[in-house]
Structure formats: structure tokens, C-alpha cells
Design a protein around this nucleic acid. Structure first.
Lengths: 146, 146
DNA sequence: TATTGTTATACTCTATAACTATA
DNA sequence: TATAGTTATAGAGTATAACAATA
């Protein structure tokens, strides 16, 4: 049973996420913040729009934005047209943190794939991308232009 | 950044584990119990040996065994030679639950890979197995004879 | 003293419901 | 009444330290 795809994905996902979390910690970021930063890098967005795009609960967005605001990565501004809404935008500091996080992610990738032959590493990227698409996980490629 | 291996492994691992957890729930099991059951299927073992083999804290083992005892899957018996130790063994009910869990795991595997072409599905199994070995995740193959 | 198992504590992540203020 | 955001609460997972019994 421990050689099934579901079991291996679970273990490897946990291992990869823990390692990424360790690298992000000095930046004051956590892995789940990265999806938020990347969406906001394209355009400012209301909180519930973020929640829908990331498929998480509204209360989780509030918490994450509190943390991102604390490190100066985002700014919330009341929408003058509809005063219920907060428009969330990336600060210059947030842009910088997003770039640094992306760099760290690529470094962790290299480590995770380090012992694989180049062909197997390429195969890993390919098949994980296919699985993500198959299960509706939004990726950069699916999100549109950079 | 959301198209990195570390990010995709994290998301897919979470998705796979959640789906597996839903399927296991009617059995009174959780995904993390499966590693315990599979080790005990080979031979009874003391609790700290389980902890070392599974690389989890001793207190986590206590908690998991409490849950597995509650569903009748395992039995703890005091070691007469060293009365500090508890020998943990699988009950016939535990054997049955282990087989049912393995069946469910293979079903979830089939679903996860359903939309992939056979070649890509085989590639997924291959590359996840290689990554597991590379990072010291114990699998059936590494654990010895069945 | 060291080891086995247990309990207590705490922190993260996730999910839900109740609440406010605006519309 | 419906929506945007917030707060409170609870559950699972994980990690550490303190503790009792035994060696």
C-alpha cells in the first residue's frame, strides 16, 4: 500500500512543503502565501475574488492577508465604489518577496530532483503538470500571460 | 512559481490525501494509520520501533495506536521480558482492515491517473517511486518481502 | 542514569458558523 | 435580503517537553 501513487504523493508533498517552508521562513512567508502573491502580481483584487481563485475559505484569506500585511507585502484599500470591498494590491516590497520566493522554489525544485537523471527529472515536471491540469489545480501556465 | 515541482507536489499531495481520507473514513481509519498497519502485517513490534521505522514522534504513535485499538485493528501486550515495552500486533480484524485500505488506495490511484494516457500513468508511478527512494521514504519495495 | 510509554502543551492548517457593515 | 469582510470556534496533524514505570 505504501507504494501507491496516493501514498507517495502524500509523503512527497509533505516533505517538499516542509522544506519549502523552512526556506521561506526567513522572509516571513509560508508556502500558502505564494499563490496569493502570484495572483496579486498580475492585478489587484478583492478578497473574495482571491478566495474564489485560490479555492479557500474567506476566513483563510483574511488570516493570510493579515500576515502578508504584517510583512509589508500587500496593502488593503477600501473600494470607493463599493465600500464593503477591500482591494488588495502588492507593494514594491511584496513584488520583491514574490521574486525571492520564486527563486527559493526553484532552488528547492533542483534539490528535490537532484539525484534523478535529467530525463527522469523532465518526466517528473511533465507528469506533475499533467496531474495538476487533470485535477483543476491552477498553475502559471493556466493563469495566463506573465 | 505555481508551476514548480515543490508547489505541485504540495497541492497534489493534499488533494490525494484528502480523497484517500474520505474513502478510509467508513473504516474508522485515517491515511497515516496505513503505514502502521503495513509494518505490523509483517511482524509485531514495540511502539518505539514503530516510531523509528515511520520517523514520527513517540507521542504520535501512542495516539495512532489508541485509535487503532479503538477500531479493534491492533492489540497491545506487555513484554514479559522487558516490562517497559508494549508489543503491538495486528488482530484478524486489523488484517482485514489493512487489505480493505490497500484496495481503496488502489482505487484512488486509478482515479488520480484516470485522465492520463497509459504511458503517462506509468511514468507517474515510476518517477514518484524514484523520488521516494531518493528522499528515504520507505515503500513496500524497500521494506522487504511480502 | 537511560529507556519505554504516556500525558500535556502548543502551533499550524483547515472548515464552519456567527457577526458587522454595507449594498 | 444579499454580499464583503471579520471573528470565533473546533478538528486534525505535528512537535516538544515533562512525567511515571521499569531497566
Amino acid at each position: 500500500m505504501t507504494d501507491t501513487v496516493v501514498f507517495l504523493l502524500g509523503k512527497l508533498g509533505q516533505l517538499a512543503t516542509n522544506r519549502f517552508a523552512d526556506r521561506l521562513a526567513p522572509l516571513g512567508l509560508r508556502p500558502r502565501h505564494c499563490g496569493v502573491l502570484e495572483l496579486l502580481r498580475v492585478a489587484p483584487m478583492a478578497q473574495l475574488d482571491l478566495a474564489r481563485r485560490l479555492d479557500v475559505a474567506a476566513s483563510v484569506i483574511v488570516d493570510m492577508l493579515d500576515q502578508l500585511e504584517a510583512v509589508g507585502a500587500v496593502r488593503r484599500t477600501r473600494d470607493v465604489a463599493d465600500r464593503r470591498r477591500q482591494l488588495v494590491e502588492l507593494t514594491p516590497e511584496g513584488e520583491s518577496l514574490c521574486r525571492q520566493a520564486a527563486h527559493l522554489a526553484r532552488r528547492v525544485d533542483a534539490e528535490l530532483l537532484a539525484t534523478l537523471e535529467p530525463g527522469h527529472a523532465a518526466s517528473a515536471r511533465d507528469v506533475l503538470g499533467r496531474l495538476a491540469v487533470a485535477h483543476g489545480i491552477p498553475t502559471d501556465a493556466a493563469a495566463g500571460p506573465r
